[in-house]
């Protein structure tokens, strides 16, 4: 009894109420709005069944392409960050001069906003004067210079490059924290058994890094599926609409006043992330109970 008095449930209320009203309610209401013709131009909202979803999958505006782009971004952007970041972490975990300085430098872009990073790279990738093209000119490889953000062949690689520039240090830092928690005896034992670099990586390092890998994958998935800022600032969905993703398309619908369609796209994302999220969150919270 004393327990219940000490830990009143009312302590949960303020956070729970705010969370329910401003975080859960929009998503739930959004599900309802996605079945309506809600728009800027008429005061009435009518139920229209699955019309919006039919539009999403059959319209000439290629919404399914935006959904595919979102999935492409989620997969590729994470692979090109997580794999190099792992090796970078292994590299900086070894003994070397100045490794703390390097760690600090690599992590630096993580504290900047995607917006600022996007603007910085609008300049670096500038077709005529940008740093990258000037570099190619200077090293006598002018044929490598390109219109990075306007050329359909190069626009996705450019986006992934900028995203990696900003994000690798963060992923690396999480791996470093994981690496530091591995007891050194494990490597001593592996050395005695005569294990080589790759064997040690496969048999000791990777299994011990599972928590860090999980965190990077969970963060990477949520980041990738929700991506907005970096695309909006770098290409705004262009050239044409070939780099449009779900959240930039939602913003376009919002800007043009077709709210019903916008919420339908958001709801689609919500459902996908909820399905992906339930087992991941189960896993994360189950770990807590064991502690």
């Amino acid at each position: 009894m004393i327990r219940n008095k000490l830990y009143p449930l009312s302590f949960i209320l303020p956070a729970l109420v705010l969370y329910l009203l401003l975080f859960i309610m929009p998503s739930v209401l959004g599900i309802w709005f996605s079945f309506t013709d809600w728009n800027r131009y008429s005061p009435d909202i009518h139920f229209v069944g699955f019309d919006n979803f039919r539009t999403l999958f059959t319209s000439s505006k290629d919404y399914s392409g935006y959904i595919l782009n979102t999935l492409l971004f989620t997969v590729v952007s994470n692979v090109v960050k997580i794999v190099p970041a792992l090796f970078l972490a292994l590299f900086l975990n070894g003994a070397m001069k100045g490794r703390n300085v390097y760690r600090a430098i690599f992590f630096l872009p993580a504290v900047l906003s995607f917006l600022v990073v996007g603007l910085i790279f609008r300049s670096v990738l500038h077709p005529s004067h940008g740093l990258l093209n000037q570099f190619f000119m200077a090293v006598q490889l002018p044929f490598l210079a390109g219109k990075w953000l306007a050329d359909p062949t190069w626009v996705w690689p450019s986006i992934f490059l900028v995203d990696a520039w900003k994000g690798i240090g963060y992923v690396m830092t999480i791996f470093l924290a994981g690496l530091q928690s591995i007891p050194l005896d494990y490597y001593d034992a592996a050395n005695i058994d005569g294990a080589g670099y790759w064997q040690k990586l496969r048999a000791v390092t990777l299994p011990m890094l599972v928590p860090a890998i999980t965190v990077n994958v969970v963060f990477g998935l949520t980041y990738g599926l929700k991506v907005f800022d970096i695309i909006y600032v770098l290409t705004n969905g262009g050239p044409g609409r070939m780099t449009e993703v779900i959240n930039t398309a939602v913003f376009n619908e919002f800007a043009s006043g077709t709210y019903g369609l916008g919420t339908a796209l958001s709801t689609l994302l919500f459902v996908v992330m909820a399905i992906v999220g339930i087992p991941l969150i189960r896993y994360m919270t189950a770990k807590e109970v064991e502690v």
């Binding site: 969370y19 975080f23 859960i24 929009p26 998503s27 209401l29 959004g30 709005f33 969970v218 949520t222 599926l225 929700k226 959240n247 939602v250 913003f251 619908e253 919002f254 709210y259 916008g262 919420t263 958001s266 709801t267 994302l269 919500f270 992330m273 909820a274 992906v276 999220g277 991941l280 969150i281 994360m284």
Partner: peptide, 10 residues
């Protein structure tokens, strides 16, 4: 909620 996106329009 960690995994959920925000429906900004709603």
């Amino acid at each position: 909620g960690i995994m959920l996106p925000t429906n900004f329009v709603a």
